[in-house]
Amino acid sequence: MSYWDKKILREQLDKKILPLRKAVESGATSFGWIKAIREALGMSTSQLGKRVGIDQSRISRLENSEVDGNIKLSSLQNIARGLGMEFVYGFVPRGTLDDMVRDQARKIAMVRMKRLNHTMALELQELSDEDKKNALKDMVDKILIDNPKDFWSK
Rank of each mutant, 00 (worst) to 15 (best):
R38V: 07
R102V: 14
L144F: 12
E25S: 01
N78V: 01
N147Q: 15
D129Y: 10
L124K: 15
R51Y: 02
R61Y: 05
M120C: 12
L116C: 12
L62G: 00
I34R: 03
R61H: 08
Q77L: 04
R115W: 06
I108Q: 02
D150W: 11
V88I: 13
M110C: 02
D146Y: 12
L76P: 00
S153K: 13
A135V: 12
D146Q: 15
N134F: 09
I59A: 05
M100T: 13
K137Y: 05
D55L: 05
I71F: 02
L116R: 14
L18E: 15
G90Y: 01
S75Y: 02
K133N: 06
K133D: 03
L18G: 07
F87M: 09
G84P: 05
T96W: 08
E63W: 04
E11K: 14
K35V: 07
I8D: 13
K154N: 04
Q47C: 03
R94H: 12
A105W: 09
L18M: 13
K7N: 09
G53E: 05
W4I: 13
S2K: 11
F87R: 03
L62M: 08
D150N: 09
E126M: 13
S60L: 04
R81N: 03
E25K: 07
G90R: 01
G69R: 08
K72W: 05
L73S: 05
K22V: 09
L124F: 14
E39R: 13
R51S: 03
A105S: 12
F151C: 10
E66L: 02
A105E: 10
N78M: 05
L124S: 15
L83E: 00
R94E: 15
R106T: 09
D5M: 13
E39V: 12
M85Q: 08
D131L: 11
M113Q: 09
A121Q: 12
E123V: 10
G42N: 04
L136H: 07
K6F: 10
M43T: 01
R10H: 14
S57G: 11
S60P: 03
A109F: 11
M85S: 06
